[in-house]
């Protein structure tokens, strides 16, 4: 019974196995990156960036149809362009980075929807916006897995400056003469992981598997490494549970996965061991010496 509900779909169907592996790879890269997005208060910037990918993917689609590689490269170029432009504008003008990013991503998103809707069918638009995790190809799996590997290795390399830049940016500037380079490397990682996620979950929900588990982990874990490990675990479990929901109740897979992650997030807000609603309103007695 339990086997039928939880295991059998993955044993019986190749597309379910592929989807599960894609979720695993996305969780490996997205967990730590989402953790840093939350710690750097960049959640909404991540959201903006995920929308900015759309026109690039759309142009890729125009050139070669539903091709994994052209759409990914297009999305990558568009995402990086918006991230760098926003970063540069905020450093040379008075506009703050969040405002300049919002400006660019709105232009980018409108352009993307325009391209897809004038040149393709609505089915194509849905495909780009919401992804197709149940029809992940071998190529897409290799791409997603490669991006996960690249992300983890790069994060390991820039871990120290990244942590210092979150915790005490002035110290990093004074001791190493700059934090901008680490910031941009991190932005590149965010964009690359969003491109990986959009293959499976679409541009609108790619961020979900990165952001929701990381935000949920904040209510349980108290160190950077444990936050990253927990958000990876939660992301994978959300993917697993979401796929089963989608299979057993015949629901669209992307929203099922993200809603599962959302459920974990809400439960963590309410029940987490750190600064959650529960600890706020039902505190344990404080220490008496």
């Amino acid at each position: 019974m339990i086997y039928d509900a939880l295991i059998a779909p993955f044993v019986d169907y190749g597309f379910m196995r592929r989807a599960l592996i894609a979720c695993f790879a996305l969780a490996l890269g997205g967990g730590p990156i989402g953790t840093f997005l939350v710690l750097r208060r960049m959640s909404l910037m991540g959201d903006a960036m995920s929308h900015a990918i759309l026109p690039g993917a759309a142009i890729g689609f125009l050139i070669a149809g539903l091709s994994l590689w052209t759409m990914s490269i297009g999305g990558l170029i568009a995402g990086l362009a918006v991230a760098f432009l926003a970063g540069i504008i905020s450093r040379v003008t008075a506009l703050r980075e969040d405002a300049s990013l919002a400006g660019f991503y709105l232009i980018s998103l409108a352009l993307g929807v325009l391209i897809v809707s004038t040149q393709g069918s609505n089915i194509d638009l849905l495909h780009v916006l919401f992804g197709t995790i149940l029809s992940v190809t071998d190529d897409a799996l290799i791409l997603v897995a490669s991006i996960a590997t690249l992300s983890i290795v790069t994060l390991a390399l820039i871990y120290r400056p990244l942590v210092i830049e979150c915790f005490d940016p002035a110290f990093l500037r004074a001791t190493t003469g700059g934090g901008t380079v680490w910031h941009f490397i991190f932005l590149v990682l965010v964009v690359v992981n969003l491109v990986a996620g959009f293959q499976a979950l679409g541009t609108l929900m790619a961020l979900g598997l990165m952001m929701l588990p990381a935000a949920a982990a904040r209510f349980w874990a108290g160190a950077v490494w444990s936050l990253a490990a927990l958000s990876t675990t939660l992301a994978f479990l959300s993917g697993f549970a979401g796929l089963l929901l989608s299979y057993n109740f015949n629901l669209p897979s992307g929203p099922s996965i993200i809603l599962t992650a959302g459920l974990v997030y809400v439960a963590s807000i309410l029940l987490g061991t750190r600064d959650s609603v529960r600890t706020r309103y039902f505190p344990r007695a404080h220490f008496h010496d």
């Binding site: 710690l39 120290r160 942590v163 210092i164 979150c166 915790f167 005490d168 940016p169 002035a170 110290f171 004074a174 001791t175 190493t176 874990a221 108290g222 160190a223 950077v224 936050l227």
Partner: peptide, 24 residues
């Protein structure tokens, strides 16, 4: 600096924060 730009909500232990002084 006069006003440290330290993010005090960042999850880091005292000894780790102090060890940043070893950066060089």
């Amino acid at each position: 600096p006069q006003l440290a730009e330290i993010d005090r909500s960042f999850p880091i232990t005292v000894i780790d924060a102090v060890s940043l002084g070893l950066w060089r």
